[in-house]
């Protein structure tokens, strides 16, 4: 059963120098208990996409079109109050940098306790025992003391654990992870990933896992969606996409992480395109090794091929 379905979502930032089309017509869905991975370079729109689902996009950013169907309701049509009830309770989020996503002048335990305050009308001080249990669950050592620590007194890994405990507190149906390990040391990353997997099993929640670490995504996700310049270029089961990439961009991305076995690091030439004036035709064509005559003229549509979706002219719509 689909827990979340996003249809033709467009999120634009209205800046003085132009309109940044950060997410430009993205559709996907997440099944119950499934982990969907979203990968792409910085600026591909993956983080904007994650924030849009909970409608946490700040002006000048705006959801301009599309539907976000969660449990039968279109989140884009809810009032701010109705949306507030969903945040943290039904859908929660873990962010990239635990150092800046915690309030520096408030005790960590109280910040976690605020989830109960927001949704169960509880006074913060009365739910601290629940926070201690949560901290135990996410393996924060010495939880009775740690709830009274300020963020700067904890390590990056501990802070991320605290943020994860906040995200799992009310047993949400969907957890959105926006590069939850990027800001952490490599050794800590693995611990956090294992913790997330554990939490997912325990809660039987669905997850959207955003990362530019394809190797990590290939290990833990069920489905994989590759984004480029605000658009989906390939989307299918992780195993298939990873082992047999169809889109030249996906292929290049996967090649670049297998460099350890080679002498040189294969890179993708050029820069990610401007999102204000994206290239005509296929947005990847200026950097694409396989481009041919129509690539800079018409935009390829997302077609289904071999059980996955690809947006590339190499796989014409002749069939």
């Amino acid at each position: 059963m689909k827990i979340l379905e996003v249809r033709n979502l467009k999120v634009y930032y209205f800046l003085h120098r132009g309109i940044v089309k950060a997410v430009d017509g993205v559709s996907f869905s997440v099944e119950e208990g499934e982990i969907l991975g979203i990968a792409g370079e910085s600026g591909s729109g993956k983080s904007t996409l994650a924030h849009s689902i909970l409608r946490l996009i700040k002006p000048p950013g705006e959801i301009v079109e599309g539907e976000i169907i969660f449990q039968g309701k279109d989140l884009t049509k809810l009032s701010e109050d109705e949306m507030r009830e969903i945040r943290g309770r039904d859908i929660s989020m873990v962010f990239q940098d635990p150092n800046t996503y915690l309030n520096p002048i408030m005790k960590v335990g109280l910040q976690v306790a605020e989830v109960y305050e927001a949704h169960q009308n509880a006074k913060i001080e009365t739910v601290l025992d629940k926070v201690v249990n949560l901290f135990k669950k996410v393996k924060i050592t010495d939880p009775e003391k740690r709830i009274y620590s300020y963020p700067h007194e904890l390590s990056g890994g501990m802070k991320q654990r605290a943020l994860i405990s906040m995200a799992v507190a009310l047993k949400p149906k969907l957890i959105i992870l926006d590069e939850p390990t990027s800001a952490l040391d490599v050794t800590i990353q693995l611990e956090i990933v294992n913790l997330l997997k554990e939490m997912k099993e325990e809660l039987n929640a669905s997850m959207i896992f955003i990362s530019h670490d394809l190797e990590l995504l290939s290990e833990i996700t069920d489905k994989l969606m590759i984004m480029y310049a605000g658009k989906v270029v390939e989307y299918g089961s992780t195993k298939e996409v990873f082992n047999n990439p169809k889109h030249p961009y996906t292929e290049a991305l996967i090649n670049s992480i297998k460099y350890i076995r080679k002498d040189t690091l294969p890179t993708i030439e050029g820069e990610p395109p401007s999102l204000i004036n994206p290239p005509n035709g296929c947005r990847f064509h200026p950097r694409c090794p396989k481009k041919f005559d129509i690539c800079d003229k018409t935009e390829p549509s997302l077609i289904t091929i071999d059980g996955r979706k690809v947006s590339c002219h190499l796989y014409g719509e002749e069939e």
Binding site: H51, L54, L56, K58, E80, R84, E85, I86, R87, G88, R89, S92, M93, F95, D97, T100, Y101, L102, N103, P104, Q111, E114, V115, E117, A118, H119, L163, M166
Partner: peptide, 17 residues
């Protein structure tokens, strides 16, 4: 503009808090 404000909103806290 700070990130911890995003966290606070993502928790479902009211705008007043």
């Amino acid at each position: 503009e700070s990130n911890y404000i995003v966290t606070a909103r993502a928790k479902g806290l009211s705008e007043r808090i």
